[in-house]
């Protein structure tokens, strides 16, 4: 049991899975179980194939393949990224909607592939689920996200925050969420005050489940966000501003996702400015 929770990704998987179950059972989302399975399988298969291919390739180049071991599947396949791929699959299932499973599978495939295509010094700079969502929406025109699907019940807010905080404590990237959320809330608050809407309008806008899933489970992916704390602070502020502008000036409903997508390449720049060792999921395991 203790072993299970040493990896922060286990928390994420459990939380996202729980949200999915809650959404399906209590929020009457019209999600089909087989679509969810297909997304997850696509993510996993893509991850395993691509990372195995990379592994094979690099070993081949290094010529230090212990040939004697023979070509056993275990040697050939790389399962190390399976948990991350599962998180991506769950995240996509929670947020993305489409008419057909094919589109959802495409999103899963694109999401995982982006990790291998868009990387700089072996670090991918797009959040995979975010990349899958944005590209699928703009490319196919038959996928969408439903920001209203959670409703605005406080109960969910609390649940999200608790679960999110738990994950973040484990990962050590909580400041990204905290800063993004505070800046975004502040901007919305000021704008609402300027417009003269009352406080209820603000709270109604902010008690959106999608915003919280985004803040706590997408924005904090330690692998694709800037390595140094300073960069992350700056980065989170930039995303909050852009989200606000996309939402209030351009009336884009899912502006937060687009903002993250647009800001992602900035990670490279920020990492060059503030150097820091990059995050490894295994770190926690190694230390403990």
């Amino acid at each position: 049991m203790m072993n299970l929770f040493k990896d922060a990704r286990d928390y994420q998987i459990i939380c996202l899975g729980l949200f999915l179950v809650l959404g399906i059972c209590l929020r009457d989302w019209t999600l089909q179980i087989n679509s969810i399975l297909l997304i997850i399988i696509t993510c996993l298969v893509t991850q395993i194939i691509l990372s195995s291919f990379l592994k094979f390739n690099s070993e081949f180049i290094n010529i230090n393949i212990p040939k004697k071991q023979g070509f056993y599947l275990n040697n050939l396949l790389d399962f190390s990224g399976v948990k991350s791929a599962l998180i991506t699959g769950l995240g996509l299932s929670l947020l993305l909607r489409a008419n057909s499973s094919n589109i959802l599978m495409l999103a899963g495939f694109l999401a995982i592939s982006s990790k291998f295509i868009f990387n700089y010094h072996q670090k991918h700079f797009f959040n995979p689920a975010n990349f899958g969502i944005i590209i699928t929406i703009f490319l196919t025109k038959s996928a969408w996200v439903s920001p209203g699907q959670w409703g605005s019940d406080w109960w969910y807010l609390l649940l999200f925050i608790c679960a999110g905080a738990m994950v973040l404590n484990k990962v050590g990237r909580w400041e990204t969420s905290a800063i993004f959320l505070s800046v975004f809330i502040a901007l919305e608050g000021i704008y609402n005050y300027y417009l003269g809407w009352n406080f209820e309008v603000l709270t109604h806008q902010l008690t959106s489940g999608s915003l919280l899933v985004f803040t706590f489970f997408m924005l904090t992916d330690p692998r694709s966000i800037p390595n140094a704390k300073n960069s992350r602070i700056l980065w989170a502020i930039a995303i909050a501003f852009l989200s606000f502008i996309l939402k209030e000036v351009f009336y884009i409903n899912s502006g937060i996702f687009l903002a993250l997508f647009m800001m992602s390449p900035l990670t490279i720049l920020l990492d060059l400015i503030w150097k820091e060792n990059r995050f490894r999921w295994q770190k926690i395991n190694v230390m403990s």
Binding site: N99, W197, E200, V201, T203, N253
Partner: peptide, 13 residues
């Protein structure tokens, strides 16, 4: 508390 905001989706269900 808020005015209604809509979005068109591709949902054909």
């Amino acid at each position: 508390p808020e005015d209604l905001k809509f979005q068109n989706t591709a949902n054909q269900q």
